[in-house]
Amino acid sequence: RELEKFANEFKVRRIKLGYTQTNVGEALAAVHGSEFSQTTICRFENLQLSFKNACKLKAILSKWLEEAE
């Protein structure tokens, strides 16, 4: 439930900031050390990743959002 809420909020905030899914994937290299594909970001936003992978990505995306805003 919390993950679903974060995924929805993330998408809204990403769009408000003017980032595409591809931009986010590339920008994550600075935060995490490796890029993520547009497909991975899309699957996260649509809750199509495994729970374990989504939880890992949530932590990375939270950190990125803090820096982007």
Rank of each mutant, 00 (worst) to 15 (best):
A27E: 15
T39L: 10
L49W: 00
T20E: 06
A30Q: 11
K16T: 02
L49D: 02
T39H: 12
E26A: 09
N46Q: 10
Y19I: 08
E66K: 09
K52E: 14
L65M: 08
E66V: 12
S34F: 08
T22N: 13
E4V: 12
N53C: 13
K63H: 14
L65A: 03
E2Q: 06
A27H: 11
K56R: 13
K56S: 10
S62R: 08
A54M: 15
A27P: 01
W64N: 07
A59G: 14
S34L: 10
A27Q: 14
C42H: 13
L3Y: 10
G25M: 07
N46I: 01
L28M: 02
V24A: 04
K56I: 09
N8W: 08
F51S: 11
V12L: 11
L49T: 04
R13S: 01
S50K: 11
L65C: 02
Q48F: 01
S37V: 02
Q38F: 08
K63S: 12
A59P: 15
A29D: 04
L3I: 10
F10R: 03
R14P: 03
S62L: 11
K5I: 12
E2F: 00
E35P: 08
V24T: 05
N46Y: 04
A68Y: 05
Y19S: 04
L65W: 04
Q21T: 13
R14V: 04
K58M: 11
I60Y: 08
I60E: 06
E66Q: 11
A30C: 12
K63V: 11
L47D: 04
S50I: 08
I60D: 09
A59N: 14
E66D: 13
S37D: 15
V12R: 12
L17N: 04
I60G: 07
G25N: 01
G25T: 09
F51Q: 13
L49A: 00
G18N: 00
V24I: 06
N46P: 01
T20C: 01
F10V: 05
L47C: 15
N53R: 15
G33A: 06
R14K: 05
R43I: 01
Q21R: 09
E66T: 12
T39D: 15
K52T: 14
G25I: 11
T39K: 14
N53W: 10
K5N: 12
E4W: 08
T22H: 14
I41W: 07
T40E: 10
N46D: 12
S62E: 14
A30D: 07
G18S: 02
K58E: 03
A27C: 09
C55V: 15
F6I: 00
E4A: 14
N46K: 10
L61K: 06
K56L: 07
R13T: 01
V31F: 09
R14S: 00
K52Q: 14
Q48W: 01
A27Y: 11
Y19W: 09
E9C: 04
K11T: 07
K58G: 05
A30Y: 05
S62C: 09
Q48A: 05
C42F: 08
R1W: 12
I41T: 01
R14G: 02
V31K: 15
L28F: 05
R43L: 11
S34Q: 14
A7D: 03
A30K: 13
T20F: 02
R13G: 04
G25V: 14
N46A: 11
A30W: 04
R13A: 11
L47S: 11
T40R: 02
R43K: 14
E45L: 01
G18D: 06
K52S: 13
E67W: 10
V24S: 04
S34R: 13
G18P: 05
E67R: 11
A59I: 14
Q48I: 03
N8E: 11
L47I: 02
L47T: 04
I60N: 08
E67I: 00
F10E: 03
K11D: 00
R14T: 01
E69R: 04
F51A: 11
S34I: 11
G18H: 03
E67G: 09
F51N: 09
Y19F: 07
F51I: 12
C55S: 14
L57K: 07
L61S: 02
F6K: 03
Y19R: 04
K16S: 08
E9P: 01
A7H: 00
N23E: 15
T39G: 12
F51K: 12
N53F: 15
K52P: 12
C42D: 15
S62T: 14
S37K: 07
E2T: 09
W64A: 07
A29K: 10
E9S: 10
L3C: 00
A30H: 08
S37I: 04
E2R: 05
N53Q: 13
K52A: 13
E66G: 08
E69F: 05
F6Y: 02
A27L: 09
F6M: 03
E4M: 07
K16V: 02
N46F: 02
S62W: 13
G25P: 03
E45G: 00
F44R: 01
G33I: 00
E45S: 01
V24E: 00
R43S: 08
T20S: 13
K52C: 03
L65F: 01
T39R: 12
A30V: 07
A29I: 07
E45A: 08
E4I: 11
I15M: 14
F51W: 13
A68M: 13
I60S: 06
A54V: 03
L61V: 04
L61D: 03
S62I: 13
A59D: 14
C55P: 03
R43P: 02
Q48C: 05
T20R: 00
E66H: 09
R43M: 15
